[in-house]
Amino acid sequence: MVGELRQSTPITLNTFMRGIWSENPVFVMLLGMCPVLAVTNSVINAVAMGLATTFVLLCSSTLVSILRSFIPKQVRIATYIVIIATFVTMVDYIIQAISLELYKALGAFIQLIVVNCIILGRAEAYASRNNILKTVVNSAGMGIGFTFALLCLGGVRELLGNGTFLGFPVFWEGFQPWAIMILPPGGFFVLGAWLLLFSWLKQRQARKAQIKKGELAHAT
């Protein structure tokens, strides 16, 4: 126990920020694609899905972290799935109680949070090895990162596909909405475009760093 304590690194801002930027589950790790594409045809749906997933992620990884020394190695995946499924069932009934309209819009995708690889991945790769506080901070970051990604997609798709943002009209009177953006192909296109943007930014950053290094070497 003492050795474990000494080895563990302290909680830094990076523990939290990692999930939002450098290890963003959607844009960098490409996990949990199905809900990302399926429910982002409007901002409201995207945010609701993001919050529901964050809740399940937080609760399940906290519980896994608490129970990590009691769960036998051989049956750990099955245990994680049962824990996750329990919280998803709770979320399913909660959303049904809060807003029936939202429940109908999200459909089976609330129950499909069970098979979201982000959650199982966090349980297996992080929560089963780290203490409760660290797990909570890290999961919160991941959840917010996921919600952010959903918001990015949902925002673009609703804006272009419907001409509205959160239901309020944005464009001028005669704007012709691009219906394709709300339909399935639009999901693929918008996510592809975001990935292009991010990889372009990353390449530009790398090139700039290289030029700077070159200049420094030249100066000395």
Binding site: L30, P185, G186, G187, F188, L191, G192, L195, L196, S199
Partner: peptide
Amino acid sequence: VSQGAALSLMLAGLLSL
């Protein structure tokens, strides 16, 4: 820039279309 996942997604979009 477009190598990897971005290109696959664009392809999937065309298929879906």
